[in-house]
């Protein structure tokens, strides 16, 4: 079972959380799901988390739901640390 152990890394956890957000907004009406995902991440994810998310996306976005990838354009890029 894929969930048979804890998340091996913070990154896996991040992918999981982003997908959870995407799952919720996918269920909502209208065609703004990607904007809503981005808005949620902009509002609640601190820059470090968003930086990690962009790193994952830049490496191909392995495991991320297509909606998160679509939302990436609207996610605020954190300033360099």
């Amino acid at each position: 079972m894929s969930h048979d152990k804890k998340f091996n890394s913070g990154k896996q956890h991040l992918v999981y959380m982003a997908n959870q957000i995407a799952t919720f907004f996918t269920s909502q009406p209208g065609d703004e799901a990607a904007e809503n995902v981005a808005d949620h991440i902009n509002k609640f994810w601190e820059p470090r988390m968003r930086r990690h998310l962009f790193e994952i996306i830049e490496r191909g976005g392995d495991g991320l739901s297509p909606l998160v990838l679509k939302a990436a354009d609207s996610i605020r890029r954190p300033q360099a640390a």
Binding site: G10, E46, P47, R48, M49
Partner: peptide, 18 residues
């Protein structure tokens, strides 16, 4: 103007070293 770390994020970031 950026949101800060939540408790689980603080712990994650601590393990990462930041």
């Amino acid at each position: 103007d950026e949101p800060g770390l939540r408790i689980p994020n603080m712990l994650d970031a601590a393990v990462e070293g930041s």
